[in-house]
Structures are given as structure tokens and as C-alpha cells.
Amino acid sequence: MAAVIELEHVTFSYGEEAEDQGFIEDLSLSVEEGSFVAVLGHNGSGKSTIAKLLSGLKLPQKGRVFVCGIDTSDEERELEAKKNIGMVFQTPDNQIVATIVEEDVAFGPENLGVEPSEIRRRVDEALAAVGMEEYKDHAPNKLSGGQKQRVAIAGVLAMQPRCMVLDEPTAMLDPRGRGEVMKTILRLREQYGMTIVLITHYMNEAAMADRVVVMDDGRVAADGTPREIFSQVQKLKQLGLDVPQPTELIDQLKQAGIDLPDGILTVDECVQAVTRAFMEE
């Protein structure tokens, strides 16, 4: 399958004084069409810098970034690249432009000069896809955090991008909002086969992806399926990541010499594994 996103030996930094904002060094990464990739890392590991580079808001100092085959530093094709990559950011409030939900969703297509009747169709479809159609006439500032993020996702969806990049979209939400947003992301993947890059520091969110890339010090520290990655409990802890409690429990029991399987992530898996180990005797 073709790569929607391609980073070739990319180096970027905000300058020596701002190293804690994250930097990237000689990073090469490609994301295939239709895949769901989670990028994990602690703050300042460079994971959010990837989002800035993909969006074209920042250009690499060395190397090249391609979105759907378009070099993001190609000024002539800037709009085309931006149209193909939908960005959702962390702060729900700071990405909603209009005073009415549906008008905000229309903002992207309006900028692209789409016909009004087609905008109407796309807005309705996008709002339905994120389950916010009944709020189309509402003012965004009356919505909950999770609802605002869903509106932001709809706004991106209405541009019909080939890929969606979400930069810590749940970091500022309560558990309910977090659940709403993750459900929406999974639905997009199922309904549209959308390529998704989810930047997060929540491991249970990353567990839903087909591929997990762990960032540290501007480089890829690990890259693999969730199971491969999450079986390396000690390494993840070293990288400043959160290990789900069931995974941690299994790891501690294994260290005490009890024979248990690798890559346990959820409560149910943990219960099953421990019960099985217990009943074997």
C-alpha cells in the first residue's frame, strides 16, 4: 500500500533554549494509507513536533516531509497538502472559529471554495459522523470539552482529507469526553478507512491502534504492534510512559517467577491470564 505520510531524515528544533518544547533528529517514518498509528512519548519527546511538521506549520531544517506525495515545503502546492491532512489540536476552544457549530464545520470547505450545496452536504455528513448533528445550531462555547473536540474533528472531516493527525486530542478532557473522542476516531476509521495518526501519552488509547511508535529524545525509541511494544514494561517506564495497571501487575508477578503471557493490556485479559495460571496447578 502507498504511504500517505513520509518523513525522510528530518531534523527540526525550536532552538537550543527551547529544547523542552521538543525537537527531532534524523527521523524517518512512513505511514501507510488506511493505517492507525499511535505516537507515544512524554512531553518534550518530540511527538508534538511531528504534528507541526506534518501540518506544514513548521518546515524541516534538514530532510523532507511528504503528505500524499506532496513536499510540505513546496509553496505552490501548500493548500493541496493542507487539504489532505486534517489537524486536530489539544485545546478544544482554540480551534473553533465560528459562533455556530455548523458554520464552524463549514469553515474548511469555504476556504477551499467548495460549492455551497456541496458544503451543506459535507457539513451534514461530517456532523453525523461525529454524532453532533443535533447541536448544529448551537454556540460552541456552551458545549462540553468532548463535544467541542468532536466539532473540531467534524470541521477537519468536511475538508475530506486523506489523513487525520490528532495531537493529544484528549489531554484536556474528562474521562467521559475522552471516551467520546476515542469512539469517534474509531468510527472514522471503520466508516471511511481514514488514515489516522494519534499523538498521545495515554497507553490505553495507543492500544487501539495497529501500530505504535514510541518517541524519545527526538528519535524513534520503539516501533511495532501494541502488543510488541507493551510487553516491554521496563523500557516503557524508563521512557516516562504510563503502563496500565493490569500490565504492570502481570510484569511484577512475572519478575517474581510466575509464568504468565506477555502483552497483557486490559483488565479482562489480566483476569483471564491470572485465573488460567492459577487453575493450571
Binding site: L253, A256, V274, A277, E281
Partner: peptide, 13 residues
């Protein structure tokens, strides 16, 4: 909680 239970059954070091 779990380790003593496993050890009773002869598992673990």
C-alpha cells in the same frame, strides 16, 4: 496478595 497464593501452589521464586 497474589504472590503468596501462587507460592502456596509452588510457583514463583
Amino acid at each position: 496478595t497474589l504472590l503468596p497464593l501462587f507460592r502456596e501452589r509452588g510457583q514463583g521464586t
